[in-house]
Structures are given as structure tokens and as C-alpha cells.
């Protein structure tokens, strides 16, 4: 592509068009190259159960993939333009985490990140049901983000020391991002809780709706090399609720179906529609190269 030339002065903008030094890495992690784990040694250390590791990376990857999908649906619907860039940032971070985790799992399972994302059936997705929830309003958006990020951050902090070096590296990188996400959720929960009467009511109501979905985050997982300390996560959330002037809901955790929930591939009715949208183009053109 050639730009047409014009006589320039010292601030000739045409010079900028030729600049390619950023090499496409500029925008978001993962847009500059096709393989998210390129250049990284992906050998599974001896003594580790590779299929458990794959299952677990799939679980954390699916959480991020499906959660990011819900955030993507908020693009052009945010209450202010500045919030558009904020939410797109968070969605991009989670998408980046999903790509790396799916690639880690895929390396063990013999599948690519895209094969896993676009060609698995619903029952094979391992995300928690909290990730699938469609936020009815901005209060649910920020409340859900607070709960999810607080939990995921606590978990990733533990995983930064896990025996698998790739998972450890993904977790370490994710800690910075999740700190930002949790912070965003927390600040907005406080603003809404301690804002107007209307915002307080809506925030309280949102918590009531979301609370039943939080319990699933702490269900025991045999594949998990680490877990988030419920007490620590509670402490964070309680601090935020206190600052926001909000009450901890009484609601009981959402029941599983015969003991099986998101991690077992048993999702809410929303999941079918999510996958129908997410997978539609890829499935319509299975022989295509994108």
C-alpha cells in the first residue's frame, strides 16, 4: 500500500504511516501472532498428570472465553464512552487468557485453540455458570465482575507457583490483569452502592441475583492443583460491600443438577445461545481459513 506524497514540513504525518515497529503486538496480547504459546517450551513436566492438567486448563480457559463473550455483548451499550474502552480492555484480557489456556490444553489433547473454541459441543465446555450469566444491567455487570475477578485473582495468585511452568506463567501474567478487573468492579460497586438511592437499590438487587451463582466457584475440583481461599475472597468482597453500604445477600448457592454443574458440562439454558452465536460462522464454513 502506498500513501500519496505531499511536500511535508517537520511534522509530516505520512512518516507515521510507514511505522511498523510495533509489529501488531500493540493492541492486545494475541493479535500479533497465530500461536498464543509460540516460542514457549510446552513439554509437560514428568510426573504431572497431563490429562488432568488439560482438563483444568480447559476449565479456566472456558471461564475466560465465555465471560469475555458476555462482555463483548456490552460493546456500544456502555453508559459512557470512557467505559467502552475499559470494558473492551477487560474483554480483551480475558480473551487473551482464554487463548493461552486453550492452547495449553490443546497441546496436550492434540487440538488447536480454535478447534476447542468453535467445534466442541456444549456438554464439553467446562465453564462455571457464573460466566454464562447475561447481565441485566450495569449493576449486574460490575457486581459479577467483582465476584468473578476476586475469585479468579485469588486462584491465579496460587497458581503462579504451580508445577506446570506454562500454567504458572499464564497465571502470573493474569494476576496483573485480574487486579485491574477486580479494581474496576469494586470501584463501580462502591459508586453505585453509595451513589443515588436508585443506584443503591439496583446494586443491592443485582447482588441478590448474582449471589446464588458464586457458590459454584468454590466447589472442589479434583483436577485443580490449587484453589482460591474462600475466606480471602469473602474478605475482599465484604470490604467492598461495607464501603458501598450494601448488605451481603442471604441467597443460597444455585443447586447443581444431580451434583453436576458447569465444570461437568451441565450449563444454564443461556449456554446454548452463547455457543450458537460464538460458533456460528466457524461452523458454517468448516473448510475455511481465517
Amino acid at each position: 500500500m502506498t500513501a500519496f506524497t505531499m511536500s511535508g514540513d517537520h511534522d509530516n504525518p505520512y512518516d507515521l504511516l510507514g511505522d511498523d515497529h510495533d509489529d501488531g503486538h500493540r493492541w492486545a496480547f494475541g493479535t500479533g501472532f497465530t500461536d498464543p504459546l509460540e516460542g514457549i517450551d510446552t513439554t509437560v513436566p514428568a510426573g504431572l498428570d497431563a490429562s488432568a492438567l488439560a482438563r483444568y486448563c480447559l476449565a479456566l480457559g472456558d471461564d475466560a472465553l465465555i465471560y469475555s463473550h458476555r462482555l463483548q455483548q456490552w460493546v456500544t451499550r456502555m453508559p459512557e464512552l470512557e467505559e467502552e474502552t475499559a470494558i473492551a480492555n477487560i474483554a480483551l484480557d480475558l480473551l487473551g487468557q482464554a487463548r493461552m489456556l486453550l492452547a495449553r490444553a490443546g497441546g496436550i489433547l492434540g487440538q488447536t485453540e480454535d478447534q476447542l473454541a468453535f467445534f466442541r459441543a456444549e456438554k464439553d465446555f467446562r465453564n462455571v455458570r457464573l460466566a454464562e450469566h447475561a447481565d441485566a444491567d450495569f449493576a449486574e455487570l460490575v457486581g459479577r465482575l467483582l465476584i468473578f475477578s476476586a475469585w479468579r485473582l485469588a486462584l491465579f495468585a496460587e497458581l503462579s507457583a504451580t508445577p506446570d511452568p506454562v500454567l504458572a506463567a499464564i497465571a502470573a501474567k493474569g494476576v496483573n490483569e485480574l487486579t485491574y478487573h477486580r479494581d474496576y468492579g469494586a470501584q463501580w460497586v462502591v459508586r453505585l452502592g453509595d451513589g443515588t438511592d436508585l443506584s443503591h437499590d439496583r446494586m443491592q438487587r443485582a447482588l441478590g441475583t448474582l449471589w446464588p451463582l458464586a457458590g459454584e466457584l468454590f466447589r472442589p475440583d479434583a483436577d485443580a492443583p490449587a484453589s482460591a481461599d474462600p475466606g480471602a475472597v469473602d474478605a475482599v468482597i465484604d470490604t467492598v460491600l461495607a464501603a458501598a453500604g450494601l448488605e451481603r445477600p442471604d441467597a443460597a448457592p444455585l443447586a447443581a443438577a444431580l451434583g453436576r454443574a458447569g465444570r461437568d458440562g451441565v450449563h444454564t439454558e443461556a449456554m446454548g445461545y452463547i455457543l450458537a452465536e460464538l460458533q456460528s460462522v466457524a461452523r458454517a464454513y468448516p473448510d475455511a481459513t481465517w
Binding site: 493492541w27 492486545a28 496480547f29 494475541g30 493479535t31 497465530t34 472465553l65 463473550h69 463483548q72 455483548q73 460493546v75 456500544t76 464512552l81 467502552e84 474502552t85 473492551a88 480492555n89 474483554a91 480483551l92 480473551l95 487473551g96 482464554a98 487463548r99 486453550l102 485453540e113 480454535d114 473454541a117 468453535f118 452465536e277 460464538l278 456460528s280 460462522v281 466457524a282 464454513y285 475455511a288 481465517w290
Partner: peptide, 30 residues
């Protein structure tokens, strides 16, 4: 302009394309 392009983020047929498009729409907001 974020709208016609944003229309395809959730349906992008590869994760890399999805990231690229989401970043592009974010740029437009900026």
C-alpha cells in the same frame, strides 16, 4: 462506526480475529 463492526465480534470465526476486531472497535471508541 463501532456498531457495524461490533456486530461481528461475538461471531468472529477464530480467536485471533476476534481479538483483532475487538481491539479495533476499542480503538474507534478512543
Amino acid at each position: 462506526g463501532m456498531q457495524p463492526e461490533g456486530n461481528w465480534i461475538t461471531r468472529a470465526p477464530s480467536l485471533r480475529r476476534k481479538a483483532i476486531l475487538l481491539a479495533k472497535v476499542q480503538d474507534e471508541a478512543g
